[in-house]
Structure formats: structure tokens, C-alpha cells
Amino acid sequence: MNANASEDSTSQAEIWLIRHGETEWSLSRQHTGRTDIPLTEHGRAQAQMLAPILAQEHFDLVLTSPMSRAIETCRLAGLGDHAEVERELREWDYGIYEGRTTPEIRESAPGWSVWESPIPEGESIGEIEGRARALVQRLAASPGRIALFSHAHFLRVFAGCWIGDSAALGAHLLLDTATISILGFERENRAIRQWNVRHPDIK
């Protein structure tokens, strides 16, 4: 997988976003923030399929969320030996909604949306936007190719902040397990180069 204009080294930051493989809760669509859910057997197989794609690239920096599902995905994808744990890559804190699906939450909070509604005892959209924007600013100033192993909502927020300084833009960016997305530049403008790309054998 090559980002077309991508070269072995980049004069501007090029950031590869890798969502972790399948877990039991991602399969059931339960909100998984700070609960350390392991990969399923299928999730581990998904992560292994990423290895030949990532092996074709040189990464100047590899960062992973501290959650085991991200760390294991990074390891099985072949980049574990080069990875540093980055606390800011952890998933959204869903507070009282941890472990619940959106339909379940809407039984008591009609119309609830993680993008628009309060999250009691958790992280507001402003708070997650703040940590994503700080990470964007830091990494955008780091020339080279960077791999981030993280989680669906955080990576969607990060991408929204990359292209428009807005976490809310992430609502429009679907992201499946064990996928690769690439952020970069079009001249001086931060842009999405590829999004939600999966290995053709990953189901």
C-alpha cells in the first residue's frame, strides 16, 4: 500500500493512523474507552495481515495507545520493537456509558450522540479535541512518516482536527477495525490522503 506520492522519506509529516483489530466489544459495538479489552482471535489475525503492508514503509516514529488492544495490534503488525507508548492516543473516556451501545444509551437518553451529547463522568468533546489538537500540532511539526496505533473515536477526532481543527468533523469519518488511513499535506494544507483502507483479505 503506497500513498501514491509518498516517498521513502518525507519533508513534511505523513501520519499513518492504524485502528486496532477486532475485540469482543468492537464486534458488539459497545463503547470501549478505558476498559482494557483484548483482541479476539480474529482481531489478532487482522493485525498480522497489516504486517506486509507496513513492512514496505520506513517509519521515523511509531506511537501506540497504552491499551493492550493497540499495543498488541502494533506488535502483530510488525512495529512493536520500534513503538513508544503515547498516553494521548488513548480512547475517548465514555464515563457512565462505558460498555454500552448507542441504542442502549438512547433508551434513557433519547437522541444521544457521542459527538453532540453530554458524557457524565467522562470526557467532553471539547476535552478530547484539546488533546487531539495538541498532538496534531506536535506531530505536524515533525517531518517524516509516523505510525499511530489507536482507537476508532480518537483517530476520527484526530483526523477531524488535522483537516479542520474540529473534533466534530470526525462524525463524518467511519473507521473499521484493522484499517490504515493516511494524513499528510497538499502543499501547505493538511489533508487526508487515504481513509479506512483495509487489506483485501481482512473481513
Rank of each mutant, 00 (worst) to 15 (best):
S26I: 10
A168D: 05
L139Q: 01
R29S: 09
E7R: 14
A3R: 10
Q12Y: 01
I53G: 07
I125G: 00
R87F: 11
S6N: 12
D165H: 01
S68Y: 01
I96Q: 12
G43F: 07
D165G: 03
C161P: 04
L79N: 02
E86P: 04
R44H: 11
D36S: 02
D93K: 06
E72W: 02
I53W: 15
L79A: 05
I96C: 07
E116D: 14
Y97N: 01
N196I: 05
N2T: 14
N2F: 14
H42M: 04
T177V: 10
V136K: 09
I37Y: 02
D176Q: 10
G122E: 09
C161L: 02
R156P: 10
G111K: 14
R29T: 03
P143E: 07
R193D: 01
L63T: 03
L174F: 09
L173G: 05
G170N: 02
S124V: 05
A168I: 13
E86N: 06
H172R: 15
A159D: 09
T35G: 00
T35V: 11
G170L: 05
A3E: 08
D36T: 04
R87A: 13
T179H: 08
V62K: 02
R138E: 12
P110A: 09
G78D: 13
E14F: 05
G21K: 01
D176T: 03
I125F: 00
P52G: 09
L155A: 06
M49C: 11
L173W: 08
P110E: 10
E24H: 00
R87C: 05
T179K: 07
W112R: 06
F158E: 07
L148G: 14
S124Q: 08
E57C: 07
P38M: 00
E104D: 01
E14N: 09
R90N: 07
F59G: 11
P120E: 10
A55F: 08
E88A: 10
D201T: 09
Y94G: 00
E123W: 07
R44D: 11
E88S: 11
A109I: 02
S108K: 15
S68Q: 15
E116F: 04
A178Y: 04
K203N: 15
L155Q: 14
L169G: 02
G111L: 14
E98I: 03
N196H: 08
H172Q: 15
L135R: 00
D93Q: 11
W92N: 00
T73D: 06
E186K: 13
D81L: 11
Q56W: 08
E88K: 04
G122S: 09
E7K: 15
T32H: 00
F158Q: 08
V85F: 04
E22C: 11
A159M: 08
A51W: 03
R106G: 05
E104A: 06
W112G: 03
P103T: 12
H31Q: 14
D93H: 15
S181L: 04
Q137V: 04
A5W: 08
G21C: 00
A51G: 06
G170E: 08
